[in-house]
Nucleic acid binder design. Structure first.
Lengths: 205, 205
DNA sequence: GTCTATATTACGATAGAC
DNA sequence: GTCTATCGTAATATAGAC
């Protein structure tokens, strides 16, 4: 056991990504140096380049990994046929998934401008895929008469902005629990998109 | 007229703030150097320090100026007594005001973490003042029976997140005009907070 | 796989001439 | 009020020893 410095642990790669995630979320990509990340991991700056070709790729891999996790989690969840049920499920899923990884969510929309144009396109494509899933639900609801939404694309942006906003103020241990918050947001989303005459009938059954 | 370099125009101060605003919005505070700002203005880096003691103060002044403009614009607008009308006015005001200054809006929530703690507190206070105005409208509506909002604080955050989100996707010259967008968002906000039985009666009068 | 050392470049801020 | 020049520091990334 002649190891006295550095990581040597075989899990330095994940530790680098985790340290970068936390530091980027706290101080911003541009304000964080490779030396800071290295210090957090417990190695020297040069050693980081065994795990990433450069700082840009480190950021890109974090964002790409996050978006892929999001899409995989959605793919594993069966979507109800009833548009109202599907929308409720999307609402709760979004709040819960984003609550569980605040750092990744934060950098995923704060650090987009620090991506190279090519990397940005990749992340944008993944993000659009996710948004399309909500838009499909809204369009199905409009077709069935359950929803009253003039512009599904805009309603999609509005709902996602509203739901993602939870991360900016919600703190564990506060006055409300996360399930309570889910419930409140679901009520608002439902009312915002539901055709008037249905609010108190089948949708609350 | 022996002037061959630099600004000397008597309006260098505003030009510095404008250049900093645009560059901070495009690349982020941490990624923008004083030399870049100076180049945009047409002076050397050292000359900037005639207009700001340091880079931090430059950012702070931009954010503070933006929030004060926002609060002044609200103070000049009489708020209708009817909660539904007040909410409609707030909705349209927010979308319009934020649409007119996308750079200032952008840095006002992207660069908060680059403020010193003391400067952050100041901006937070101004922001809370604005949010309280919406919360008051919602509480008045709940008291009058016009609104059905379980948690006015949360509804406030939800509505503001939703409305501010317009800036992330709306582009002049697209399929929809800003007044049309205003209308769509107002419908969604109204439905989200209105007591069910009122949606089609007095509020659409 | 990590270290030390370094090449190269850039940063914020200041001093003093004009 | 702006210039030029510079101080002191820190950045990304690489080279070569171990």
């Amino acid at each position: 056991m002649a190891r006295t410095q550095g990581s040597h642990s075989g899990i330095t790669g994940p530790k680098v990504r985790e340290a970068a995630l936390c530091l980027f979320a706290k101080d911003g990509y541009a304000a964080v140096s490779m030396r800071q990340i290295a210090a957090e991991v417990g190695v020297q700056a040069g050693a980081l380049y065994n795990y990433t070709p450069d700082k840009q790729t480190l950021l890109f891999d974090l964002l790409k990994g996050h978006m892929e996790e999001l899409l995989e989690a959605r793919a594993e969840t069966p979507v109800p046929g009833c548009p109202a049920r599907a929308l409720e499920q999307f609402t709760r899923f979004h709040i819960r998934f984003h609550h569980e990884r605040p750092e990744a969510v934060f950098i995923s929309y704060m650090e987009l401008r620090n991506l190279t144009p090519e990397n940005f396109e990749v992340i944008e494509g993944l993000r659009r895929n996710y948004e399309d899933q909500l838009e499909d639900i809204l369009r199905r609801g409009v077709a069935s008469g359950a929803f009253d939404v003039a512009e599904p694309k805009i309603a999609t942006m509005a709902v996602i902005a509203m739901l993602t906003g939870v991360n900016t103020w919600f703190r564990e241990g506060g006055r409300l629990s996360l399930p309570e918050v889910e419930e409140i947001y679901w009520h608002m989303v439902r009312k915002a998109v539901t055709a008037p005459q249905r609010i108190e009938s089948e949708l609350t059954a």
